[in-house]
Computed example of a mutant assay.
Amino acid sequence: MKKYEYKFVSFKIPSGFDYEKKVKKLEFYWNELGMQGWKYCREGNGFTVFMRELER
């Protein structure tokens, strides 16, 4: 049976008007998580949840 671990992330988006900068920052962080094997699972209660399969 597959086993998973979960990561709960609360993203702090800086204030300001530079929307493109904010998007690039979030994109960079999500790509970093993806390279570590994390996959987007869901959002709720102020958190974004990622999951990845545990290695045996």
Rank of each mutant, 00 (worst) to 15 (best):
M1G: 10
M1Q: 03
K2W: 06
K2G: 03
K3E: 15
K3R: 15
K3W: 05
Y4A: 09
E5I: 10
E5Y: 08
E5F: 08
Y6C: 12
Y6L: 12
K7W: 03
F8D: 06
F8T: 08
V9H: 04
S10W: 03
S10K: 14
F11M: 09
F11Q: 11
F11E: 15
K12S: 08
K12C: 00
K12D: 12
I13C: 07
I13N: 07
I13S: 10
P14F: 03
S15F: 09
S15D: 14
S15L: 10
F17P: 07
D18G: 02
Y19S: 13
Y19Q: 14
K21W: 04
K22W: 01
K22G: 00
V23T: 05
K24Q: 09
K25H: 00
L26S: 00
L26Y: 02
L26K: 05
L26A: 06
L26H: 03
E27I: 00
F28R: 12
F28P: 04
Y29T: 11
Y29R: 07
N31D: 06
N31F: 02
E32Q: 13
E32I: 00
E32V: 05
E32P: 04
E32F: 04
L33N: 02
L33E: 05
M35E: 13
M35Y: 10
M35A: 08
Q36H: 10
Q36T: 02
Q36C: 03
Q36F: 01
Q36M: 15
G37K: 11
G37F: 08
W38I: 07
Y40D: 15
Y40R: 13
C41W: 02
C41Y: 08
R42C: 14
R42V: 06
E43W: 08
E43F: 14
E43R: 14
G44F: 09
G44S: 12
F47Q: 06
T48K: 03
V49Y: 02
V49I: 13
V49M: 03
F50I: 02
M51S: 02
M51N: 00
R52N: 00
E53L: 00
L54N: 01
L54S: 01
E55G: 02
R56I: 07
R56F: 04
R56P: 04
